[in-house]
């Protein structure tokens, strides 16, 4: 399971503050800890609360530079503005890279898809249409198919795409976890070669003991075929579960990563 560390995100207050103050130390220390904990990719989101577009781009540029000064891990450039993504791509060094994210909304899909295609980057595409988040599997998969048709036209292949099946709180609608799991299976079946990725925490919104729900959901999603998760790698129990799930879904040859994590004392048993 590809682990995308979610921590460098301006929706977190301390991170937003570090970005505003251009506090390199805070960011680099956090990134180093994420890397040690086993994050494969680092998601970077510089936030959208900056007053001008130019400032948003500058914040992203600073953040990418700061993260890359301390870590060789590839990044996930997280923004819904093409200009901000472009700013990040300008100074990005390294071959692997994921852009997060697009939806079935055609014009943004073409613009950002074009940026990804030009940089040989992979793309996270939400199973979401112009009218919002469908509450059922069928429409979500239709959105994915539609996205893929557009991406084919600009030269991208299913292997370049991570589809996000979308996660809605089970506290509001108890069928939603199953809708997400079914969507993972349907995407893998209907778009062979495409991968799936999702953030977990929305599933437990509004419930007590959220981490328990998140962990259980990750195990179930792994069984459904989830390829990547956007999560907090510093959450030892969650990371341990991801390592164990890789063993149980045949994704960890000779159980190497699991045993290594065990030897390094990183597993919560």
């Amino acid at each position: 399971m590809l682990i995308i560390g979610e921590n460098i995100n301006a929706t977190r207050k301390e991170v937003a503050q570090a970005i505003t103050n251009r506090d390199c130390g805070f960011i680099t220390e956090l990134v180093s800890r994420m890397e040690t904990a086993g994050a494969d990719y680092i998601d970077v989101n510089a936030g959208s609360n900056h007053p001008t577009s130019k400032q948003k781009q500058e914040a992203m540029r600073w953040l990418v530079g700061t993260v890359q000064s301390v870590s060789c891990r590839p990044l996930v450039i997280d923004s819904d503005e093409a200009g901000v993504i472009e700013a990040a791509l300008d100074i990005y060094s390294g071959e692997n890279l994921i852009i997060n994210s697009v939806t079935a909304e055609e014009s943004r899909l073409c613009t950002i898809g074009g940026l990804a295609s030009g940089k040989n980057a992979q793309l996270i595409a939400l199973a979401m249409g112009a009218t919002g988040i469908p509450d059922n599997t069928r429409e979500r998969v239709e959105n994915c198919n539609k996205i893929m048709q557009t991406l084919y036209k600009i030269g991208m292949q299913p292997e370049d795409v991570y589809f996000d099946p979308l996660v809605m709180p089970v506290s509001v609608d108890q069928a939603q976890a199953l809708v997400t799991l079914d969507t993972i299976r349907a995407i893998k079946k209907e778009i062979p070669g495409a991968k799936t990725v999702m953030g977990l925490s929305n599933i437990s919104f509004g419930l007590p003991g959220r981490k328990l729900i998140n962990r259980t959901f990750l195990a179930m999603a792994a069984a459904a075929g989830l390829d990547g998760a956007i999560l907090d790698p510093l959450d030892t129990r969650m990371m341990s579960l991801a390592r164990a799930a890789d063993v149980l879904t045949g994704k960890d040859k000779w159980c190497r990563r699991y045993a290594r994590s065990y030897r390094q004392g990183k597993l919560d048993k």
Binding site: K253, W254, R256, R260
Partner: peptide, 13 residues
């Protein structure tokens, strides 16, 4: 290290 061929991961990296 248990590395049969080039693609294999060893005990450590």
């Amino acid at each position: 290290q248990g590395r049969k061929s080039e693609e294999d991961e060893g005990i450590d990296e």
